[in-house]
Simulated assay, not measured.
Amino acid sequence: MTEILPPPPQRRKARASLSNAAGRFDMTRDAIDDGWGDLRDSVPDQEDMGLPRIETDIRHEVARSLISYNKSPDLPFDRSINTYRGCEHGCIYCFARPSHAYLGLSPGLDFETRLIARPNAAEVLRRELSQPRYRVAPIAIGTNTDPYQPCERDLGLTRACLEVLEAFSHPVAIVTKGTLIERDLDILSAMATRGLVRVGISVTTLDADLSRRMEPRAPSPARRLATIRRLSQAGVPVRIMTSPIVPGLTDHELEALLAAGAEAGADAASWIMLRLPREVSELWQEWLAEHVPLRAEKVMARLREMHGGRDYDPRWGHRMRGEGPYAEVIANRFKTACKRLELLQKSPDLRCDLFAKPAQAGDQLALF
């Protein structure tokens, strides 16, 4: 039987995944030991190796549609848009990793290094919002991959979509770890004055070292808290998202995270328990064994306790928070802390009554 070999550690610098296993729709695409010896035995010291880091590869996809609709009772929205596939932040726990398998790519390193950008996203969004049968409801951005990951700095696809939403006076909810959102404060603050936007900033831990290992290319926890402050000062409603909570690793920080968010200006808060769908479970357990081996057994035991003995229970109503005594303790701690800190657990509804198709070249002018 052949042994699957992970990429040499030197090539994984600033990447969370320890492997690049084939997606569930592919036969195989892994390095293997072919009998000529373990390649890892002959890897020289990092100084002498001369191998480049794994670079981020961004390819373009011409989108035919942009708005995705869902009927999940677990979600507070029924539609979302994503300008990118894959995410360079590389959070090892990301529940969206399995979606990369549909592209014939690995949910492992491919997810954080081989990205897909949709350069015509704003054009398609404008077209879809202009359809006569379109009915307005808040659009969520950042539900699958981060709209403010590093490549957005150069491509500006998220900003282009925000410009369309502002032109249509369309409500939007944004979720991100990216501090690049501060670049778009001009649009966001203007929309906020009309009740058209709210933002969620995810802060998983206050431990900078743990954050760097678990979410290697995301901004530091302190920097994300500073973003909450800037958004709040600009009049943009912002919630701190203590997600995911990792049992046995970050759960002890829950109250401190909420307090830090409230101090920075967040007016609301939310939480989700760590989720390990499909390939994420194996990737997560590899990461645990590498980075926190002494806690790995405890973390997985707690997760399985909440999911009926399995790594993950995908049932609606259970997948986001689990069930049982431990899940109830976390929920009660969250509720108590939010009450003390005056953080809302449900934000006010965004306005939908202002939605209007803006005038475009070629439109017939009204007679009166």
Rank of each mutant, 00 (worst) to 15 (best):
Met1Phe: 08
Glu3Ala: 14
Ile4His: 10
Pro9Phe: 14
Gln10Cys: 13
Lys13Tyr: 09
Arg15Ile: 12
Ala16Asn: 00
Ala16Val: 00
Ser17Gln: 11
Phe25Cys: 07
Phe25Pro: 06
Thr28Met: 12
Thr28Lys: 10
Asp30Ile: 11
Asp34Met: 15
Trp36Pro: 07
Leu39Ile: 09
Asp41Pro: 05
Pro44Asn: 02
Asp45Val: 03
Leu51Ala: 14
Thr56Phe: 12
Thr56Ala: 05
Asp57Met: 13
Arg64Trp: 08
Ser68Ile: 09
Ser72Pro: 01
Pro73Lys: 10
Asp74Ile: 05
Pro76Phe: 02
Asp78Ile: 11
Arg79Gln: 07
His89Glu: 02
Gly90Glu: 02
Tyr93Thr: 02
Phe95Tyr: 15
Pro98Ile: 02
Ser99Ala: 15
Tyr102Thr: 03
Leu105Glu: 13
Ser106Leu: 09
Glu112Leu: 08
Arg114Tyr: 11
Leu115Arg: 06
Leu115Lys: 11
Leu115Met: 02
Ile116Thr: 15
Ile116Ser: 11
Ala117Thr: 06
Leu129Asn: 01
Gln131His: 14
Pro132Thr: 08
Arg135Asp: 15
Ile139Val: 13
Thr143Glu: 14
Asp146Trp: 11
Pro147Tyr: 02
Pro147His: 05
Tyr148Phe: 04
Glu152Ala: 06
Glu152Phe: 01
Arg153Ala: 15
Asp154Met: 12
Leu155Arg: 15
Gly156Trp: 08
Arg159Val: 06
Leu162Trp: 04
Leu162Ile: 13
Leu162Met: 14
Glu163Lys: 03
Val164Ala: 01
Glu166Met: 11
Pro171Gln: 00
Pro171Glu: 01
Ala173Val: 11
Lys177Cys: 05
Lys177Met: 10
Gly178Val: 07
Thr179Gly: 15
Leu180Phe: 08
Arg183Ala: 10
Leu185His: 01
Asp186Arg: 04
Ala190Cys: 03
Met191His: 04
Arg194Leu: 09
Gly200Glu: 05
Leu206Phe: 08
Leu206Ser: 03
Glu215Trp: 00
Pro216Tyr: 03
Arg223Gly: 12
Arg223Pro: 08
Leu225Tyr: 03
Ala226Asn: 04
Arg229Glu: 15
Pro237Ser: 04
Pro237Arg: 06
Pro237Leu: 02
Arg239Cys: 12
Ile240Ser: 08
Met241His: 11
Ser243Ala: 12
Ile245Arg: 05
Ile245Glu: 05
Ile245Tyr: 10
Val246Asp: 06
Val246Arg: 13
Pro247Asp: 01
Leu249Asn: 02
Thr250Arg: 12
Asp251Pro: 03
Leu257Asp: 06
Leu257Pro: 09
Leu257Ala: 10
Ala268His: 11
Ser270Gly: 07
Ile272Ala: 11
Leu274Glu: 07
Leu276Met: 05
Glu286Ser: 05
Glu286Lys: 05
Leu288Pro: 02
Pro293Leu: 02
Ala296Cys: 00
Lys298Gln: 14
Val299Cys: 05
Met300Thr: 01
Arg304Val: 01
Tyr312Val: 05
Asp313Gln: 03
Trp316Val: 12
Met320Thr: 06
Arg321Ser: 08
Gly324Cys: 02
Val329Ala: 13
Val329Arg: 14
Ile330Glu: 10
Lys335Leu: 13
Thr336Gln: 14
Ala337Met: 10
Cys338Trp: 12
Leu341Asp: 03
Glu342Trp: 04
Glu342Ile: 12
Pro348Trp: 04
Arg351Cys: 04
Cys352Asp: 00
Asp353Val: 08
Asp353Gln: 05
Ala356Ser: 05
Ala359Gln: 10
Ala361Gln: 10
Gly362Leu: 15
Gly362Glu: 09
Gln364Leu: 14
